[in-house]
Each structure stands twice: as structure tokens, then as C-alpha cells.
Simulated assay, not measured.
Amino acid sequence: MKDAIEEESHEEHLADGSKVKHKLMRVRSESMDKKTTERMVEVIEKLKAPKEHVTVEESEDVLPDGTVHRVRKVIKHSVSHIERQHRHEGLVEKVFDGDVKIPGSESQETLETFEKPPYPETVVEHVDEVLPTGEVQKRKVIKNRMIHRIKTRHQSFDADKGPLNEEYEIDEVIPGTESTWYTDSANVSSESESDVEEQQEKVDLGRVEEVTDDGSVITKEIVETRTTTTRTVHSRSGSVDRETTESVVTEEFITPSPSPRSASPLDPKMEQ
């Protein structure tokens, strides 16, 4: 409003977070015949609680060397819904009703990643190994693995903090691709020494009798043999590993009974 003078104003805060501003304005206007008139206008402006708007942009492309380039951009700003109206002599005029971006609320964050193709890497190390005799021996170890390299570039802008730029690179070993071995041999006659201890226990499960098709009677003696084997392995590094196995063997011992004999007419005992 042109030629308006603020006479008084006050604010009220509603339970939903909205804010209502009341202003009483003295407005002067000039007519076509150059006469000046004044009127009192109440300006009521309702500002709803700010809401944050987030826009996400993502893209991905592959560079000539096979590197996967990803970009994720997040843009944030806050808006408030404003309703403005004028009241004069019992009449209400709606002047504005819409969303307005809050100045200084905008921020932007960009995250770029460069994911290079996996590549092999060989690392040679020299380590000390303690033999069972207590002697310390130098060993040469070779490690082969596949590496995954990721480069990250982080850019952000905040109205309060200003611009921020960060860049870092990480090398990761791909799980399951690492192998290690010695390129020399230890000065011992064998890689490990082992002791074997064996225990046996026999259990008599009893006897059973069976009649065969020809009428013979056989006796079966059932014996169960349980064997426990403990193997103790002493490695060159000084560690001790024990492995225990059990086996059960069931055996049957058959004892045949004499077959029944028929009486013979030539048997002298029968003649008597």
C-alpha cells in the first residue's frame, strides 16, 4: 500500500505453530480532483509453520576406463504458506494466498563417487616365525588379493556455514579374494609332528540262536567294538591341535550245532 503509515501492530502464535501478524495502517489517497482522504485498514497476515522441501537428483555413467561415476545431489529449502488480507469498514479483501520460500533456508549437498574396476594386488612381507625349538626364523610371505578402490568427493553449501569441499579415497579388499603362502621352507624336517592315541572297548551284546532251512541250529555271538582315536598335531608355529574320531564295529561270531543223525540199520547199537 502506498502512502500508508503503521499505527499499531501485534502478533499472536497459534497452537499449530502458525504466526498471525496484525497491523493497523493509516492509508492516504488522492482523488481525481486532488482531494486527499484517509482510511484505516487492518492488515492480517497468517504465516503457517515452515516446511522443508527436499529435491534429490541422481545420475550414473561409466567412464572410458570402466570407472562407475555416480552423482547424488540433494537440494533443500524451507517454505511457508502465507495468507494476507485487508479489512476496511467491514469488508475483507484477500490480497495473497500462496507459498513463499524463506530467505536463507536453501542448502545443497553433492556426493560424487568414482568406483574403479577391481584390480589385483601383490604384497610381499617378511615375518618372524618361532619354531618348536624356540628358534626364530625369518620367513617371506606373499599375499595376493583383489582391491576395490572408491574415490568420494563431497561438496555442500549452507547459508550459515558457506561452502564445504571434501575428497577422500578408500581401498577395500574384496572378501574371498585374498590368498597367502610362504615362498621359502622352514628349517625343520617336516611341517608338523603328530601323536596318535587309540583306545578300544569291546562290549558283548549276547547270543542268539537261529534255525536254518535244513534244520540246523546256529548260535550267533554279537560283539561291539568301539574305537576312539585321538590325534595331536604340533605345528611349527608352536600351536597344538587335537582331533578325536570314534568308530563302532559290530561283529557276529557264528557257532554251528551238530546236525541231527538218523538211525541206520547197520548200526550195531540199534540192533541191540
Rank of each mutant, 00 (worst) to 15 (best):
R39P: 12
R39H: 12
R39Q: 07
V41C: 01
V41M: 01
V41L: 00
V41S: 03
V41D: 00
E42Y: 06
E42G: 12
E42W: 07
V43Y: 05
V43T: 04
V43E: 02
I44N: 00
I44R: 10
I44H: 04
I44K: 11
I44S: 01
E45A: 15
E45P: 11
E45R: 15
K46V: 15
K46C: 15
K46E: 13
L47D: 10
L47K: 13
L47W: 12
K48H: 12
K48Y: 15
A49V: 13
A49E: 09
A49T: 12
A49M: 09
A49Y: 10
P50I: 01
P50Q: 01
P50H: 01
K51F: 13
K51R: 14
K51S: 10
K51E: 09
K51Y: 11
E52D: 11
E52M: 14
H53K: 11
V54Q: 06
V54T: 15
V54N: 06
V54S: 12
V54D: 02
V54R: 05
T55D: 07
T55W: 08
V56K: 09
V56P: 09
V56E: 03
E57S: 14
E57H: 10
E57V: 15
E57T: 14
E58R: 06
E58V: 03
E58M: 02
E58F: 01
S59V: 12
S59H: 08
E60F: 09
E60G: 11
D61N: 07
D61A: 09
V62L: 12
V62E: 11
V62G: 08
L63N: 06
L63A: 12
P64F: 01
P64Y: 02
D65L: 13
D65K: 14
D65C: 15
G66T: 02
T67E: 01
T67C: 07
T67W: 01
T67H: 06
T67P: 05
V68W: 00
H69S: 08
H69G: 09
H69L: 04
H69P: 09
H69N: 05
H69C: 14
R70M: 02
V71H: 02
V71F: 03
R72G: 14
R72K: 13
R72S: 14
K73C: 07
K73N: 03
